Simulated assay, not measured.
Amino acid sequence: MDTLMHGGVQPVRVVLRALSLVALHRGERAPVVAEMVRLSPQAVRNIAARYRATGLDHALYERPRPGAAEVLGTADKQRIIAMVCTDLPTGAARWTVRLIAEQVVKRQLVPHVGRETIRVLLRSHDLKPWREKHVVPR
């Protein structure tokens, strides 16, 4: 515990949990500890329960979270980028994020996709089709 408290930069959540455990070890009650570390009394009790049940590491550190699944697969991304590199639909002066999202669904490349997903995809490939009349020069 001393190496954690004096060992350099740590995430704030870890430090607050460690401070909670130290105060509880000194005999402080959960509401008093909660007031000191600015957590709820229930959160302090949960930290103590995790410590008793599974040990220090599980009380201090969170399990890795899986995160959200990717909306587009690799093949979907490639098809969208290829579409952006082709000719524009009739009547359009340039590709916009909104137009790309509409055309992707219209051409049935993916069932549904949001504009933000398209924007992030284009940014990751350093494409800015709205700045040029055609993305791939002829």
Rank of each mutant, 00 (worst) to 15 (best):
M1K: 07
M1E: 09
M5V: 14
H6L: 12
G7P: 01
G7D: 08
V9A: 10
P11F: 07
V12P: 02
V14K: 03
L16E: 07
L16C: 10
A18D: 10
L19N: 13
L19P: 00
L19G: 12
L21R: 02
L21C: 08
H25Y: 10
R26K: 02
G27A: 01
E28H: 05
A30I: 06
A30E: 05
P31Y: 11
P31F: 09
V32L: 02
V33E: 08
V33R: 03
E35C: 06
M36H: 03
L39W: 04
Q42E: 15
A43F: 10
V44T: 04
V44M: 03
R45V: 00
R45W: 04
N46D: 14
I47R: 01
I47Y: 02
I47V: 11
I47D: 02
A48K: 12
A49C: 04
A49F: 06
A49W: 04
A49I: 04
R50D: 12
R52I: 11
R52W: 14
A53G: 12
H58I: 05
H58E: 08
H58N: 13
H58S: 10
A59S: 06
Y61M: 05
R65M: 11
R65N: 13
P66E: 07
P66V: 15
G67M: 09
A68E: 13
A68M: 14
A69S: 15
A69T: 15
L72Y: 08
G73E: 00
T74D: 14
D76G: 03
D76L: 03
K77I: 06
K77P: 03
Q78D: 14
R79H: 09
I81R: 05
I81S: 03
I81V: 15
A82S: 11
V84L: 02
V84H: 00
C85N: 03
T86I: 11
L88Y: 06
P89T: 15
P89I: 07
T90N: 13
A92S: 11
A92G: 07
A93K: 12
A93L: 12
A93F: 09
W95D: 00
T96F: 10
T96K: 06
A101G: 05
E102C: 09
Q103M: 06
K106G: 10
K106T: 13
R107S: 08
L109G: 05
V110N: 04
P111C: 13
P111R: 14
V113Q: 04
V113M: 05
G114D: 11
R115D: 05
E116R: 07
E116F: 03
T117N: 01
I118Y: 01
R119M: 13
R119D: 08
L122C: 11
H125R: 12
H125F: 07
D126L: 00
L127R: 00
L127Q: 01
K128T: 09
K128V: 07
R131N: 15
R131P: 04
R131H: 14
R131A: 07
E132F: 01
E132A: 01
V135W: 09
V135E: 09
V136F: 11
R138W: 04
R138G: 09
